[in-house]
Simulated scan of single mutants.
Amino acid sequence: MQSRNWKRIVIKVGSALIAPNNSGCSSHYLLSIAQFIVRVRSMGIDVVLVSSGSVAAGAHLFPNDTKSNIATKKAMAAAGQTEMMSTWDKLFDFPTAQILLTHGDLRDRERYVSIKDTIFTLLDNGILPILNENDTVTTDKLKVGDNDNLSAMIASAADADVLLICSDVDGLYDKNPHTHDDAKLLSLVSNIDESIYAMAGSATSDVGTGGMKTKIQAAEKAVSHGIDTFILNGFSELPFNMLLQGKNPGTHFKPHETPMQEHLHWMTHTSSAEGEVVVGDSFDSPLDAQSKELTSEEILAVNGNFSVGDTILVRKDDGTKLAKAKSNYSSCLLSFIAGQNDKKFANALQHRTGPIISDKNIALLEEQ
């Protein structure tokens, strides 16, 4: 691992490893992961742990509830989080810290930077950050939904060199290895495209929320930020020993040679669009620094309610997504100038107020 020159690792551990039998937390599968973390830290490499498992850990405390409605799952998360943290804490002889967050925290730039600062401060003081989605308070609007994608967002925020996503299989196969004996493991993925996503099956764990698809989504987020990403079998000690020997333990997703800039990566993969600006299907400006500015007469519609500084989606009328960008106008003002028949008035207002979106705050999207 020293030959790789890694300085910081993010490890994602799922619910099936934390509470495999729905009877509370178990250290059975966590010991090898903890030993790996100890050895890595002894080599001078920072570690950040993203750990699912609060709901699974607390489920056994609600034996009479068979419906597991949303309120009960939130209660399970509240009860199970302390048990999960206690289990991790007992495996280390150094201090750990808990960070609970929602997507609402990550997609707000100010809170996102605050999370970064907290992680760096903990690492500077030799404390292991353990992060999880705050299932007790999160809502559909505010949740990431799975810790695979959350781990990729955290890896970006933590300026990690590598993301390790623990799975119940050895990596990405060309078909489901649980149902096909001739399934072949892909040791290296240089480009994540539709053919890679087609290989992903559904979740195979009874207690987890993510399957192989969410792991590929996480890998796509991470590699675009220049982060080496591995999917490996977390139920075995062997993959972690292989990593220590500098070997590939599963499927290695190769990072982009030219990583996306941090603020553009945040806007593309973490920030959520609060609204939309719709342009005509014939709109052909790439919205980059070399293009002309987006003008009011090119706007067909403004959808959603957003304020100055919010992230918005710019798309064509046919649904093609062009870019995510920071809006310099509120939805109210944009709707007003977009509906003006007097272009001179709209252009004068735009000239006085500035561009609708700045070329410094645009994340171009592949047409999708």
Rank of each mutant, 00 (worst) to 15 (best):
D182E: 12
S32Q: 15
D159F: 15
N149R: 01
Q217Y: 10
N248L: 09
H263N: 13
I227C: 00
Q81H: 15
H256Y: 09
E83M: 14
K73H: 01
K343G: 10
K90W: 09
D124N: 15
T209F: 09
S271C: 12
V302H: 02
F120C: 08
T295M: 14
L349T: 07
T121L: 07
A200T: 04
D318E: 04
V48S: 06
V277N: 09
S335G: 14
R111K: 07
V40G: 08
V113R: 10
P255A: 02
G226C: 01
T353C: 11
M199P: 12
I154F: 02
I18P: 11
A289Q: 14
E194R: 10
M76T: 06
E237L: 08
H263Y: 12
A152L: 02
A346I: 04
D65G: 03
E133L: 00
H178S: 02
A158C: 03
T139W: 00
E367R: 13
I216S: 15
F306G: 02
T139G: 00
D342R: 00
Y197R: 14
S296T: 11
S358M: 02
T214A: 09
H178F: 12
N132M: 06
S27K: 11
S86R: 13
A155C: 03
M153F: 06
K74C: 04
V223I: 15
D317R: 14
S236T: 10
H103P: 04
G104I: 06
G309I: 06
Q81E: 13
P355E: 05
Q81D: 10
M84R: 06
S167W: 08
Q98S: 11
K324M: 05
M260N: 06
H265Q: 09
T179V: 13
S358F: 06
R109I: 05
M43R: 09
F235Y: 15
E298M: 15
V207G: 04
V278Q: 08
F240V: 08
L163D: 00
P239W: 04
D117K: 13
W6Y: 15
S282T: 15
G280S: 15
W6A: 07
D193C: 08
K316H: 09
I99E: 07
T102R: 08
K7C: 01
S202Q: 11
A273V: 00
D108V: 04
V308P: 12
E366R: 15
A59F: 04
Q35R: 12
R4H: 14
G339M: 07
L61N: 12
F345G: 06
E274P: 04
G80P: 00
N22Y: 05
E274C: 11
T251H: 02
M199V: 11
E262S: 14
V223Y: 01
D140S: 14
E194T: 10
K143M: 04
I165P: 03
